[in-house]
Design a protein around this nucleic acid. Structure first.
Lengths: 144, 144
DNA sequence: CGCAAAACCCGGTGGTGAACCGGGGTATAC
DNA sequence: GTATACCCCGGTTCACCACCGGGTTTTGCG
């Protein structure tokens, strides 16, 4: 599986946006790019996709920038990845399959996709940030 | 995730080989290719990879061909895919990640890879063929 | 022995997408 | 009205996938 570089960049950007979630002012591309070490012109394209999908809001002109369009606990990683990858990663790719052999393969493949997607569906942007903030603490909490 | 066309072709070929598992004579590339609608010159490359990984045996010369190197219930789909994809799909790709943000992302991504791999690890070539042979029957059996 | 049938090896090609850069257009705060 | 940001569009480089073809080597068989 290859959640290419794109998805990682997008998630990194969203993490920054959630860090400034309560700020009055939006965050600029340049700032995100420098902070997370992402080529800014490339990040611009990804943020455009996130905006068109309604995950992110933009403010044009001077003092403009980006901000989250939703609360961080209402954004799942699956949404972000699906949106940035441009397709539904819950299902296999390619045409539906016709022979019994190919159908059998697709069945297993479908289950694999679903299992993977469930991990991403079960993690929100908020949880991702929590996990970053104190990984050891949260891991302890899981065992209580 | 994209278990590209390659993996599907390889699995289709292995299904044919398992159908002739008890035959004395090996199966030719041409025969597999025509039966499964795979370009034969391309299939040749894939079978070469499977052979180098010890999943398949080859017999050169006239009346030659390919046969399974192991019993079909001792070949998991994960082995086949890892072998044909040329890497361990159990783990994410790319360099290890340095910042806390990237580490957090990788953690989730790693879990997703593992969940997906488990599906492929838990399915053998034998089971794949059984599933093809009588899908409705086996589905009934699962509920008993 | 000779021939045909098969695997083997190696290189090339067309297409696609990823990751990136750059130029100019447009909206907006000050 | 000017600086500052987003916005839009295109191009480029690179790698990989799917595939093709030529030529070599091995082997069964008449």
């Amino acid at each position: 599986m290859e959640l290419s570089c794109k998805s990682e960049y997008a998630l990194l950007a969203l993490i920054v946006l959630r860090d400034h979630y309560l700020d009055a002012e939006p965050v600029q591309i340049r700032q995100i790019a420098m902070q997370q070490n992402i080529p800014d012109r490339y990040l611009e394209q990804l943020l455009a996709v996130l905006r068109r999908s309604g995950l992110v809001r933009s403010q044009r002109g001077a003092r403009g920038g980006y901000s989250l369009a939703r609360e961080p606990w209402q954004i799942t990683l699956l949404e972000v990845i699906n949106c940035i990858e441009g397709r539904d990663i819950t299902a296999p790719i390619g045409e539906p399959a016709e022979t019994t052999e190919r159908i059998a393969i697709r069945e297993v493949w479908q289950r694999a996709c679903s299992q993977m997607s469930e991990v991403f569906r079960g993690c929100t942007l908020q949880e991702l940030c929590d996990r970053r903030d104190n990984r050891q603490t949260s891991q302890l909490m899981y065992y209580i």
